[in-house]
């Protein structure tokens, strides 16, 4: 192969794989500092990206509206206005009495301020017995229904007494509105991908499917060829200069 042909090949190959090499180098450098940059803790939730990965938005869960916002479950956790308030829990219901939001889980009540601060946790057995199946209001008084009966709280939630509560309005779920669902989805790390995963997939080419992997393999080989042809051209020029 003549010198000029080799030079053209070297230049064409360089231009052809320049973008892929930039991607390889850029993602490689970032991945080298995964821990320092906390890439595995940063979540990306761009709708187009989630669509590309096949991560669908969740269906609207049954949620409970209270005066200060929404209590809703998602992927085994419970949220108040998009902020997680309980893990590994099923939501039984929620009501608001004055400035206190009462969220019922099967084995406990969470008392929250309207800003979402946790005031107190009342475990089943600390005033009322049995697993909670419903929470409601009876003439402004908070009532819970459990396996052992119906109990009404005093205004400070210190004591609970068995009551009839025939007129109680029990919390009923309604579908979470779209705006609140979008806010909830943003809070849930299950509906996202980590920056580390995105960079790994870009680096390996998996982001673009099976052909992307082959393309990145070819880019790697092209880098090897560029290094070889570059060294060869440099050596050839040096040799000619000396002659």
């Amino acid at each position: 192969m003549r010198m000029r042909q080799l030079f053209v090949l070297h230049r064409s190959l360089g231009v052809a794989v320049a973008v892929l090499l930039l991607l390889l180098v850029g993602t490689g450098v970032l991945l080298n500092h995964t821990e320092e940059l906390a890439l595995d803790e940063r979540h990306v939730q761009h709708p187009g990206l989630l669509h590309w990965y096949g991560i669908a938005a969740p269906p609207a869960p049954p949620a409970y509206p209270v005066a200060s916002g929404w209590i809703a479950p998602l992927n085994g956790a419970v949220y108040f206005n998009g902020a997680k308030i309980a893990d590994n829990a099923a939501l039984v219901g929620a009501v608001q009495s004055g400035d206190i939001i009462i969220t019922a889980l099967p084995d406990r009540l969470l008392l929250l301020t309207p800003a979402g601060e946790l005031i107190d946790v009342i475990l089943a057995g600390m005033g009322f017995a049995g697993q909670i199946s419903a929470v409601g209001l009876d003439e402004g008084r908070v009532v819970v229904r459990s396996e052992q009966g119906t109990f009404g709280a005093d205004s400070q939630f210190m004591t609970w007494n068995p009551i009839g509560a025939a007129s109680a309005a029990w919390a009923e779920p309604v579908p979470l509105p779209a705006a609140q669902l979008a806010q909830l989805a943003q809070s849930d790390s299950a509906i996202s991908i980590t920056l580390e995963r995105l960079l790994l997939d870009l680096h390996s080419g998996r982001f673009f499917g099976p052909w992307g992997v082959i393309l990145m393999d070819l880019a790697g080989l092209a880098l090897l060829l560029l290094a070889g042809s570059g060294v060869f051209l440099w050596a050839r020029i040096q040799w000619r200069k000396r002659r």
């Binding site: 301020t113 601060e117 946790l118 005031i119 107190d120 946790v121 009342i122 600390m126 210190m158």
Partner: peptide
């Protein structure tokens, strides 16, 4: 050794 969320304890 971590944050404590509640405002009160019974």
């Amino acid at each position: 050794g971590h944050r404590y969320a509640s405002l009160r304890i019974r």
